[in-house]
Simulated scan of single mutants.
Amino acid sequence: MKHQPITVLRYISLLQRNTQRYFDLALERDNIGGGQQFFLLCIFEQDGVSLLDLARFGGFDKGTVTRAVQKLGGEGYVYATPDEQDKRVHHLHLTDKGRALVERVYTVRDYWTASLTSGLGEAERERLLAALRAMSEHSCNTLKEIAGRKGELPHADPAG
């Protein structure tokens, strides 16, 4: 079987690595990077979100969310309050310092998005976003299917 030397996955990987590096450079003075900016914006957009809901929303494991939130908390951008009914659950909120950073993060994100999509018309941008959304949904569904089969791939054996 002949394999394609360059696939969509290669381009997605390159975009992800470059995006991470861009955010690391752009937010260096704020002592956060690509790993934390996503969580900062989610907490801003969903004030009071729990760690578990933040993990579910972004498709992250709890350890990744915990490390990101600890970093944001250590920098004075977020704080947690315990749930009144279940003290094991903590709700996340931005501090004044965190709220002051949000607009800058949106500006940094918007600049990067505009840079990546420069040269594309509006219709192309909309199709690209729709295609990426569909691919993301397919990836989630495929992972759920594989997990349900205990790692057995849902397709026929290519050798047989």
Rank of each mutant, 00 (worst) to 15 (best):
R67S: 07
G148M: 12
S13N: 14
G98I: 02
Y111M: 12
A123H: 10
I32Y: 10
C42F: 03
G160Y: 14
E28A: 15
R21C: 02
L143I: 02
L51K: 14
G59T: 09
T117M: 10
Q46V: 05
Y79P: 00
G98T: 03
H91R: 15
S13W: 06
G121Y: 10
D53Y: 06
L94N: 07
Q37P: 01
G76E: 13
E124A: 15
A26L: 06
R67D: 06
L92F: 14
A131S: 10
K2S: 04
H138S: 06
H93G: 05
N31F: 10
R67K: 13
S118Y: 07
E84Q: 14
F44C: 05
A131G: 01
T81M: 13
Q20R: 13
A147V: 06
A131M: 07
M135H: 05
E137M: 06
A130F: 07
E124C: 04
S50W: 02
G35Y: 05
Q46E: 13
E45T: 03
K62I: 14
S115Y: 15
A156S: 12
E45L: 04
G76R: 11
E103T: 00
G76S: 09
Q20I: 06
L52M: 09
L52E: 12
G148E: 12
L51Q: 12
G151P: 12
E124D: 15
L101T: 01
G74W: 04
T19Q: 15
D47G: 07
G151K: 11
A80Y: 09
G76W: 07
R127G: 05
E152G: 00
L52P: 00
Y106F: 11
D110V: 00
L92T: 08
P158R: 08
G98S: 04
R17G: 04
E28R: 10
K2M: 05
A26D: 03
G35E: 07
I12M: 11
A156I: 12
Q37H: 06
E75G: 03
A68C: 07
M1A: 11
A123I: 06
G58P: 01
E126L: 13
D96P: 03
G73V: 00
R17D: 08
D110A: 05
T19M: 14
T66R: 15
T113A: 09
A114L: 08
A26G: 10
G58W: 00
L15C: 02
K2T: 13
C42L: 10
E145A: 10
T66N: 08
